[in-house]
Structures are given as structure tokens and as C-alpha cells.
């Protein structure tokens, strides 16, 4: 049975749409009981974007929305900074396993979250411009320092409407909230 050209077109279009959706990978440690994670510390995110404050903004929204979920308590950023200073962690965004376990016991948290912001800001294509935010996050178990959850997501960018009619797209903060929502969906909906 031969596939009709129209079917092939539909499949190709769906594949394209899937590519545009911007959903990244996701990993959950199958042996981890996520219900036992009550308190987490969120480390400063690594910033790979052009905006020097991009990582802090994403981290801030991430902490706030994680708290707002009501499932997990997040330690204040200042307390995390104190822990990192006290333990002399050189690279706060990428601590070693040993540093993670020490930090976990110092801050008395069940898990530690770190992340990387890859894109934060405007992208241009022709006359169209829009905000795009891309980030990946990892959750480490405090006791062992191993990765128990990892996810990445990209939101925003230039839509078909932006291309056709112009416009500046959605504010960066709204895109960030959408991105963090997506990441938290991945965390809670295993």
C-alpha cells in the first residue's frame, strides 16, 4: 500500500510543528521517591545568554513558581549564597558531587537544583523580532549528589504571526514564566 502524497505532507507538517514546540529532553530517576523531596536549594544558574542578568531572572521566576506550586519549600537565595560562601564553593553554578553533598547537609535540604540559561532575549529574523528563553535544569539528591531529574525547554521565538504581521512578540518575563511552567510540568508530571 502506497502512502498518498497528502498523507506525507501531513506527516511532514506534524514533524515540523513538533520541532517548533521547543520541548527538550526530560529525565526522572526511576528509583527516586520524589515525594520525599520537601525542601530544595536553587543554585545560581549558569548564564550562556547575552543578557548578563538573564540567568538570575530565570532563577528568580523558577524559585517563585516552585514555591507557588505549594509542593516544595525553596530556601531563600540569600541562605543558599551564605552556604556557598561558607563552604567555599568556587564554581557555584557547577559544584562537584562532594560540594553538593556538603551543601545539602549545611542547608538541610533534600535536593539541590542547578541550571543553565542558554538563551534569554530577543532574536531577529528579517523585520520580525521576539523574545526567546531557553534553559535546562537538573535536580541533585543532597545525600548522594546524583542527578535525579533533568529537563530542558525553550519558549518564545518568532511565530508565524510575527513573521507575517510583524510585532515584538511577548515580553521576556512572560516567556520566562511559560518556560518555567513547562519545566515544572515536567518535574511534577512524571
Amino acid at each position: 500500500m502506497r502512502a498518498r502524497p497528502s498523507h506525507l505532507l501531513v506527516v511532514a507538517a506534524l514533524a515540523l510543528l513538533a520541532g517548533c514546540a521547543g520541548s527538550g529532553g526530560n529525565y526522572h530517576d526511576p528509583n527516586m521517591d520524589f515525594g520525599s523531596v520537601k525542601t530544595v536549594a536553587v543554585l545560581p544558574f549558569t548564564n550562556l545568554s547575552r543578557d548578563s542578568a538573564g540567568a538570575e531572572r530565570v532563577r528568580d521566576v523558577f524559585v517563585n513558581m516552585l514555591l507557588a506550586s505549594g509542593s516544595i519549600y525553596v530556601l531563600p537565595n540569600g541562605e543558599v549564597a551564605r552556604g556557598l560562601n561558607r563552604l567555599g564553593v568556587q564554581n557555584a553554578a557547577n559544584p562537584s558531587v562532594e560540594e553538593l553533598t556538603k551543601l545539602g547537609s549545611f542547608l538541610k535540604c533534600d535536593a539541590i537544583i542547578g541550571g543553565v540559561v542558554k538563551e534569554y532575549g530577543e532574536v531577529h529574523s528579517g523585520n520580525a523580532a521576539a523574545n526567546v528563553v531557553s534553559a535546562s535544569v537538573q535536580m541533585f539528591e543532597s545525600a548522594s549528589g546524583r542527578v535525579i531529574w533533568s529537563a530542558s525547554s525553550t519558549k518564545g521565538g518568532i511565530s508565524l504571526t510575527d513573521r507575517m504581521f510583524g510585532g515584538g512578540g511577548v515580553p521576556a518575563n512572560d516567556v520566562t514564566e511559560s518556560l518555567v511552567n513547562d519545566l515544572l510540568d515536567r518535574l511534577f508530571k512524571q
Binding site: P76, N77, G78, E79, V80, A81, R82, L84, N85
Partner: peptide, 11 residues
Amino acid sequence: IMEGGVSLDTA
């Protein structure tokens, strides 16, 4: 000194 924000000790 609140370097990096308010910690529990500062609070």
C-alpha cells in the same frame, strides 16, 4: 553584610 541576599541568620 547581606552579600547575595538575606540569609536566615540575617533575618
